[in-house]
Amino acid sequence: MLKYFLLNLLLTFVWVALTGQLNYTNFAFGLILGFFILWMLTRNSKPQDKEYFYRVPKILVFILNFLYDMLEANLRVAIDVVTPNLHATPGIIKYDIDAKTDFEITMLTNIIALTPGTMVIDIADDKSHIFIHTMYLKDKEKFINRMKERTEKKLLELLR
């Protein structure tokens, strides 16, 4: 996993040094080129070696998904702020988390905090559940299921 990432970076630097142009377009092109070359070279090796090549597209999809969610929620909040009537139904929800280590909990908390309308208020002492303040609370079960499916499961899939 880490070995292939370092090899990919090394190939990128070789590409940048050979072409002699240091800018982001060239750097990104070298990164993509190195990724495909390494993928071609490891096509006969063991499955755990190839894990890196399936994880990188997943990370990209997750980031795009997260940006889309962030924009959508931002627009919803924006409409609510600008129009005269307030439609907010805020509430604090107890949410059981599957994340175990401190790093996973930190990432989950950051992602929850960056989507507008939701915010983590407190973490239990034994790290088994967190308390989320949300602005549009219609159905508690639905909210918890959506959070579980869309955010936490995908995040843990990437981190583990």
Binding site: N74, V77, A78, V81, A88, P90, M119, H133
Partner: peptide
């Protein structure tokens, strides 16, 4: 916004 928590959850991210 009416109370502190809604204010906080809007402002920081927008």
């Amino acid at each position: 916004m009416p109370d502190f928590y809604t204010r906080l959850s809007i402002t920081i991210k927008a």
